[in-house]
Each structure stands twice: as C-alpha cells, then as structure tokens.
Design a protein around this nucleic acid. Structure first.
Lengths: 204, 204
DNA sequence: ACCTGAACACCGTTCAAGT
DNA sequence: ACCTGAACACCGTTCAAGT
C-alpha cells in the first residue's frame, strides 16, 4: 500500500514489494498465488477503511459511508479505481453492502428495490471518488478547454454559456455533498412511492 | 483496439502493436510520444462511438446516450474503464458533455446546476458500465456468497433476507434502465424545484 | 512450509544510425 | 520525417534446489 501511495500502481511490482520486505521476489509466492491476488489484498484493505458507521438516522449512515469512501480514495488514489473492477464477494465488501442494505431498509425502500438502489448508490460514490482520484475531474481543465478560442469554441456554445459553473469552483467537496443529498432525496421518493403503492394496491 | 478487445489491456504493448503493423516497436514513436498517448487514442475512439443522438425529447436523448455508453462498454470492456481515469478535455469528450448540457437545459435545470448534474449523470453511467465491464457486477457472485453457510451468513442477515433480489436475475439491462429512469425523475424534480423557486423568490 | 538463484519470455524507452 | 537495431533497466512467473 505504501508503494502504491508513493509511486502509483506501477510501483507495485512483485520485485519491489519483495525488496521492501528484504526478501527475494519468489518468496512472495508462498503467501499469494500471483500478483492479482496481491492487488485483491490491497482492495480488501480499502474496504476495511470504509466500513459501516454506527449512526441513528439512515440518511446519516449513507452520508457517512459516502464521505468515508471518498476519504479513502484521497488517501489511496492509485489503488481506489481497482474497486470498480473487482467483484463484490470479499468479506469486507459484503459488510459494506450489508450496511447500505440496512440503511435503505430503514429508509422504507421496498425489498425488491434495495439491491438495485444499493448498486446505484455505490456505483455513483465509487465512480465519483475514482474519477476524482484518477484525475477525470481536474480543476480548471474543462473551463480551460472551453475558453480556448478558435473553431472548437463555436461548436461548444453551452460550455461557453456555462463557463462560470464548469469546474464547481474547484470545490468537489460541496458538489459531492449536493450529489449525495440528491440521491438521498431519490431514495426518499422511492420509499414514498412504495408506501403509497402499498396502501392503494391489493397486493403486488 | 483489436488487441485490447481480444486479449485485454495487457495485450496492448508497444511491441505487440508494432508487430501487428509489421513494424519495429520504435517506429510507433513517430506517431505517439509514449504508451499513455496511445491509450488516450483508444479512449478518444470510445467517446466517438458514444456521440450525441439527434432526438427530440431531452429524456430520450439522455436514455440514448446512456444506452450507447453501455453498448460501447460491452464492445470494448478492457478499454472502457480508462474513461474514468482521464480528464474530460479531448474534443470527443467535450462534444458528449455538450450534448448532455443541452439535454439538461431543455429539461429546465438551472444553469448553475447543469455542470454538476452532468457529472452526476455521467459518473453513474460510466461507473455502471465500467463495473459491468470489469466484472464488479458478476452474475450470481453475491448470491453465492450470501448463500454460503457458516459463520459469515449470520453476519449478513439482509443478504439472506434479500437473496431473491440480489443479482437482479442477472438482468442488468432492466436494472440499468430503471436506474436511468430514476435519474431522469431526479432531473425533473430538480427543474421543478428551480421553476417554483424562481416564481417565489425575488431574484437568486 | 518457506526461501533462494538462475532462467525464460516478456516490457517501455533511449540512443545512435540509417534513408 | 520515418524507420531500424542494439541496448538498458525493468517485469511476472517457472523450475530446481535448498532448509
């Protein structure tokens, strides 16, 4: 993890890890079948850092997990994107998912919608954090491009019109919080819809 | 792109590309400064495939772009995840963003919210498609884990309760469509909120 | 069970040289 | 401008051998 944090994912080689441990590269193969398993271990440690918070209101638990996920991404930007590429079957990831299930259930979301909404929520949160860590949301990058004079500007009229809002003032904290609030509203709307549906329909 | 589609990202080496072109590895450096630039070219071609659809209703344009992004991810699962790791400053990506801006404006979203909502939407769509391509949403993986007997099952009661809904019946098409509809509702709610706010407030 | 050492089949990129 | 050939400093992993 230290190697990844310091030198990016490219710095995590079996040889570099072995050298850091004062051991021969082949010694690692007693602990791990191959390099992929080693990276899986890194991902698992990331999920341990997210964990489930002990909070009362379901909204606060959603907010806390989202915020922690993003904090983990900032601490380990090189490793974080791997979260989107690995199946959610490890113990640590199942614990996080279980906690989100619980929050959605307390929110009143219908059972049949809970796993879907969990994936919707976690996909957005992981996607945002990974985008930020990977540099997709670079401060000022888009505005700079939009301000570029020449033929391109004419083909991007809305980038020009919206220029002042393009980079959120570089304040991704506030933007992320707003996004999470919007998704919490969406969840509340889904549960309201379920409540009304249950009152009016015979069964379903 | 062919190499990536056939053998994954690992199969895309400067040496393999050169060999495919019947040329020496070093010949590539006349066209591209390094390997990263070569991968940037792949990403740019992916964005070209998404493009902006010519459709009337803003909802249909959102649906079309989301659906196309996902189709691209299925055609090029190895390259697609790179989309989340590169800044949106290339011509092709700006065109896609511009089209989403236009749809959100037609939806009635306030100018100050448009770039944020564009990022919310594209982050989810790219995140979902990348998750699917990368195998995060593996069919049956989570249910299998939840069904696993032993001590773990006791710590995951909701996975047990929700077992029948855990993998969406493997029908990610339907789940993705539902997600997109939910987000369209969210956008409509935001624009409604803006309409009401504008009528009631003096300026803002 | 855990570790070493040598080897194999690869990498991206530099450098000097050719046309 | 475009391409070659040799070299450098790396990879992950196999295999045989040691304790």
């Amino acid at each position: 993890m230290t190697l990844a944090d310091e030198g990016g994912l490219a710095a995590v080689s079996m040889r570099a890890v072995a050298s850091r441990l004062g051991v021969t590269p082949m010694a690692l193969y007693s602990y791990v079948p191959d390099k992929e398993a080693l990276l899986d271990g890194l991902v698992e440690r990331l999920l341990d850092e997210i964990r489930a918070p002990a909070s009362r209101a379901w909204e606060d638990r959603i907010r806390a997990m989202a915020s922690r996920a993003r904090a983990v991404a900032r601490r380990h930007p090189a490793v974080f994107p791997l979260l989107l590429a690995r199946p959610v079957v490890t113990p640590a990831s199942l614990l996080v998912v279980e906690a989100i299930f619980a929050a959605l259930r307390d929110a009143g979301v219908a059972d049949r919608d809970i796993p879907r909404v969990e994936r919707l929520l976690s996909t957005f949160v992981l996607g945002f954090a990974a985008s930020e860590a990977g540099g997709r949301l670079g401060p000022g990058s888009v505005p700079t491009a939009a301000r570029r004079s020449g033929s391109e500007a004419a083909e991007l009229p809305l980038h020009h019109t919206l220029a002042e809002f393009l980079d959120a003032g570089g304040n991704w904290d506030a933007e992320f919080d707003e996004d999470v609030e919007d998704l919490i509203h969406l969840i509340a709307a889904l549960s309201e819809h379920e409540r009304v549906g249950r009152a009016n329909l015979p069964r379903r």
